[in-house]
Design a protein around this nucleic acid. Structure first.
Lengths: 142, 142
DNA sequence: ATATTTGCAAACGCTTTGCACAGAA
DNA sequence: TTCTGTGCAAAGCGTTTGCAAATAT
């Protein structure tokens, strides 16, 4: 809901047109909670009988990135995975190398400690990304 | 030095042939301290009048990854960046979004704290990757 | 009416691969 | 001699782009 409103406002504010494709895609995205890739969104659109070419999917994703409503979270097998930003605080990812499941977590200790690292290396931090790979609770051998 | 010996041993142990291309490339790599990409290595080879096709460069890199002598450290602009493993403890990266410089750092607090995260989420950690992006000491506005 | 957006297919950049020849064992 | 490795050029993959037609404003 918040996502659709945000996007429509962004389109208006920047004099982008509210095309059927853009509105349909953002509608689809409102129901996606987890991480998705461009082709996944395209396929989901086809299933929902939404006509939007792959090109439009990519272009809409690019627009959403610019608007700040969408984040490129991680890359997997050469593909970019996206996640919706609103209502999400910064978090990192636990990625299961066996089943591919992606779990999110937040950790204050690490979050805070990065500031120290920035100071130590005289580095002005804009963003950080921590990916932990291994076996999730379902896949780890007991 | 250690790298060349390690690679030659790996080739022997696995009955891979010691071809001119493989030996020349590993020789080049011994002089590379920092991160490099496949095409960078290919160009460096051409400059050094080493004849190795791009295909052989990629295949040699793949072999080095299998041997554990090379790590794919990060991805930048769709390209894989590699670094040589021997004699390197685990470290993370500070990446300047302005000049592209990559600085390595190690941090015990974060290193140790990951174990706790693993426990908390019942996740068997195999590896992790922390990338901090921002402005390096040279590029940050004062 | 007019400028933006679309779909298509071609182009892209990085990487991998099939094949016939070259070369290490 | 035999089997692996090479170079080349083509294919593969996710993504981007040029262009003419479609459409929101």
């Amino acid at each position: 809901m918040e996502l659709q409103e945000g996007f429509i406002r962004y389109l208006k504010d920047n004099r982008y047109k509210q095309t059927k494709e853009r509105l349909d895609l953002i509608g689809l995205l409102s129901n996606i909670k987890s991480h998705f890739d461009a082709d996944g969104l395209y396929e989901k659109a086809r299933t929902a009988s939404i006509t939007a070419s792959r090109a439009s999917v990519y272009r809409t994703i690019a627009l959403l990135k610019k608007s700040g409503l969408l984040n490129e979270s991680i890359r997997q097998d050469g593909k970019a995975l996206y996640e919706i930003s609103p209502g999400k605080q910064h978090h990192d990812h636990l990625i299961c190398v066996n089943c591919g499941r992606i779990e999110e977590f937040t950790d204050d200790v690490i979050e805070k400690h990065q500031e120290q690292i920035g100071k130590k290396y005289n580095f002005l931090i804009k963003e950080h990304r921590l990916e932990i790979r291994g076996y999730c609770s379902r896949c780890r051998r007991p």
